[in-house]
Design a binder for these strands. Sequence first.
DNA 1: CAGAAGTTTCAGAAATTACTGAAAGTTTAT
DNA 2: ATAAACTTTCAGTAATTTCTGAAACTTCTG
Lengths: 185, 185
Amino acid sequence: MKMTPLITSAVMHFGEMGSRWGFNRTVGQILALIVLNEEPISAQEIADALNISRGNTSMGLKELQSWRLVKQHLVPGERKEFFIPAGDIWTLANRVFEERRKREIDPTMSLLRDLLLDAPANEKEANAQHKLNEIHDLLESITAWSQELQNLGPEKLNTLMKLGSGVGRMLELKDKLLPGKNSVN
Amino acid sequence: MKMTPLITSAVMHFGEMGSRWGFNRTVGQILALIVLNEEPISAQEIADALNISRGNTSMGLKELQSWRLVKQHLVPGERKEFFIPAGDIWTLANRVFEERRKREIDPTMSLLRDLLLDAPANEKEANAQHKLNEIHDLLESITAWSQELQNLGPEKLNTLMKLGSGVGRMLELKDKLLPGKNSVN
DNA sequence: CAGAAGTTTCAGAAATTACTGAAAGTTTAT
DNA sequence: ATAAACTTTCAGTAATTTCTGAAACTTCTG
């Protein structure tokens, strides 16, 4: 498993970015390596290529599996476990979005719901609650929307993205188009 | 600047989430405090309320200003500087998206462009380059799209979000609606 | 210009997070 | 049942990130 210079650059970069994407350097490197390698690759090969301990590799792979970004791949006749990406690039990107939503938005939504249940103790709290409510509604919209987008599937999503500024014009016509929908206030 | 229990819970939570949102605990707490407090608040009051050093407070505020999430507010007659949110909740959310895009996507796009310029040295590299190209295109779409959404402005964005699954139906009709746009393959 | 009121910087300490490697665990083959 | 081939766990260490607080800086006031 010798990495070519190009692959090395890419792997190193994804390592650096890893922490910004919600996982750590090693996990980012492992992911890049698995994605860029057309053949399935074993844990030992990963450890060797990246110069990291076998234990760290194991933990990284576990994390990537919990994100559903890589999966195991049994090679007939081989005792070792091999790893491959859990889907195409689109799928992987979707998974990252979804996992991050779970980690970054859901816990906050849940707390906000709780905080909004209590009656405000005074003026100050009433004001704060109002702000928290705005935040809650915003997060709810984002969540609903992102699920909606995922349900569209890659093709339609792509259509929508490529549509670009056409979206604006389309929205202006929407009431004529979809008379069943009530307008938003 | 005594925090009520409700505000305390919210501030602590935003601190915990802070690191997942791209800044650290203290920065998250400071942001929450500024947003939830209707009055402008001074650096010293923030340090006291959160029990953090004055120096840390200063750095946190600097970071929040670099994210364009809070701004200074001069109170006439007061020597101190006060701080307030840089806009309404929608604006703040947009700023977070945009900043994160800059930090999480732009550097990768730039590297990918470079890596795609070199001719592949062999079979392996050609394959890797193909994958990198897919990633590049995806990130490009996401970037373009998110800029598009921001240009729509809050009202239309809200309309779009509330539209929910109507988007799917709308897309099916789009060709009739916007005949100038070519279909996507 | 001295000094009071405030802010920022940054070296070192504290806290957190990631990594190693040896030991324990698992699976398959004989 | 034993051994070989492999994986996982986890205590301790290393690396990184965050925080403090004292010193330096800035600005305003008399």
